[in-house]
């Protein structure tokens, strides 16, 4: 049947790839050169760290034991942590409609037109490329300092990231069911609603939880630039040299992060079952 004769007990000659060694060597050389340039460019010098150990030691001495007074540190810390959590939550859920719409337009298998595909890809790239902290600084000029600016910033950035991830998971999923509905005469919206989306629900929820996890941590950083929450408290503690209070805040954050992580792992396990 096939064109080449296959002799029993003898392996056919593999197609040759003559340039393989040269390309591998060139690749390794390129990586080495890039690292040399990067070490120069960042002033990477472990010696500095050894020389400066005293500064770190005094910092740690100031920070321990952590300040565990309820009224002065723990309670404000818990309140602020809750705000951080809320920012992460709204930033994730309120971006769902935008991400969903853009993802459907930006997936090759579901897009109605290649112009819509290109346009939505560009929009998603833009929201992804601008860091959430930049969005926060922009929104602060409009709505003032505080958590609301943080929520808006996360909505924008998360739309870009989650839209891209969702679009990719739709492109990767088996397109057979969608094709079956198309040949049955269903229109594009019907195909997406009844084949593509129900096929990718587990991936979508998994990515949503992953983004919630990331966004709670981002909202911490946003707090540092004035979006409120525990990030703001940590920033204030550093500025007033209250390192023992800062350690308490960081411990509270640690508990929050672990709790969010456990929650999303649990939901994903349930979903897979």
């Amino acid at each position: 049947m096939s064109e080449e004769t296959i002799v029993r007990g003898q392996l056919p000659v593999r197609p040759k790839q003559p340039l393989r060694w040269i390309t591998t060597a060139a690749g390794v050389a390129a990586v080495v050169v890039l690292h040399a340039l990067a070490i120069q460019g960042t002033g990477f010098e472990p010696g500095l760290l050894v020389d400066g150990w005293k500064g770190m030691a005094s910092f740690v001495a100031d920070a321990f034991p952590p300040d565990l007074s309820w009224e002065k540190t723990i309670r404000p810390g818990l309140d602020a942590t809750l705000v951080t959590l809320w920012i992460g939550l709204l930033g994730t859920t309120f971006s769902v409609p935008f991400a969903l719409l853009l993802a459907i337009l930006a997936a090759r298998t579901t897009t109605p037109h290649h112009l819509a595909y290109q346009a939505s890809r560009a929009v998603l790239s833009f929201f992804r490329a601008v860091p959430d902290i930049v969005f926060a600084l922009i929104f602060v000029t409009a709505v003032g300092l505080g958590p609301f600016a943080g929520v808006l910033a996360l909505i924008c950035h998360n739309t870009g990231v989650m839209g891209k991830l969702w679009a990719e998971s739709m492109e990767e999923c088996d397109s057979g069911p969608q094709e079956a509905l198309r040949t049955a005469g269903a229109n594009r919206i019907q195909q997406v609603a009844n084949a593509t989306l129900p096929m990718v629900v587990p991936q979508f929820v998994g990515l949503l939880l992953y983004r919630f996890d990331v966004n709670v941590r981002s909202s911490l950083v946003l707090g540092l630039v004035g979006a409120g929450g525990i990030g703001l408290l940590i920033n204030q503690s550093i500025k007033s040299f209250r390192f023992d209070a800062m350690v308490t805040d960081i411990l509270i954050v640690l508990v929050l992060i672990i709790a969010v992580d456990q929650l999303s792992a649990w939901v994903r396990r349930r979903l897979a079952a």
Binding site: G176, P177, E179, A180, L181, T183, A184, G185, A186, N187, Q190, N194, A195, P198, M199, V201, P202
Partner: peptide
Amino acid sequence: MIFQKIHLVPRRTALDNVCAGALA
């Protein structure tokens, strides 16, 4: 067309999958 590879949506019920044949 009835496909060799079936092409149903596994997460949906049998009834919903059959209804999808009538989407037009």
